[in-house]
Design a protein around this nucleic acid. Structure first.
Lengths: 112, 112
DNA sequence: CGTCGTTATATCCATACGAATATAACGATA
DNA sequence: TATCGTTATATTCGTATGGATATAACGACG
């Protein structure tokens, strides 16, 4: 029986969630696919859920995180702003650092 | 608009959760009140939920975390084993350290 | 100007989760 | 042996969350 320590981190702006693991995963998928609907499909979540998440992210952020186009060739699409890309990078770094810290701490407990 | 970073950590044993924030809160309440039902009341959770949590903790742990007595004067009660007390202390320390780490990291982001 | 695939939005429904409730078993004590 | 408050357990019910579905608006392009 091997114990693992896990975590979820998120950033809040007065009770609204700005970023969490799911939101960052979605932002990455948008960056990769260039479309919210394709991003949702690739993550196996409903378009509705994806749309709500992105909407919430943008409402919580000081500057736009995504930029979307409706209509046009291909129907439109969505992509990250450079601010959005920075947020993803920051979040990932903090998250990885957190995992590392926690693993170190768990090691210190001898007789768990 | 002030951003805060939050976290939840938990310890798993092959897909079963051993400890999380809620479980630790409950264990502390058991320690304080000497009874599972009183602990549940003090935390405003149902007895059922509390019982399920404690049951899950004990099933995931290598050694008993709580010790309960049925019947007798006062009807019985529950308390932590010394192993259980140790777990609570370990968890709290790691959790506090995690918060500290995350707050430090968030500070480093200048233009969030 | 018709086509196309996307964004944006509303509505309905199933499912899971917790709250509430009920009750049996228990054992120290008076 | 009757009492008491607790542990342990099952069952029912309401609600909230997400999934599925439908549809309007949009704009670049052939």
């Amino acid at each position: 029986m091997n114990y693992k320590i896990k975590s979820r981190i998120w950033i809040e702006a007065d009770n609204n969630i700005l970023l969490g693991e799911g939101r960052v995963r979605l932002l990455k998928a948008i960056e990769k696919t260039g479309s919210l609907s394709k991003a949702a499909k690739s993550l196996n979540i409903s378009y509705k859920k994806a749309w709500n998440l992105v909407d919430s992210v943008n409402k919580s952020a000081k500057k736009p995180v995504t930029k979307s186009n409706i209509g046009g060739v291909g129907g439109g699409g969505a992509k990250l702003t450079s601010y959005g890309k920075d947020l993803v990078i920051f979040f990932d770094e903090i998250n990885k650092g957190c995992w590392k810290y926690l693993d170190q701490e768990l090691e210190k407990i001898p007789d768990l």
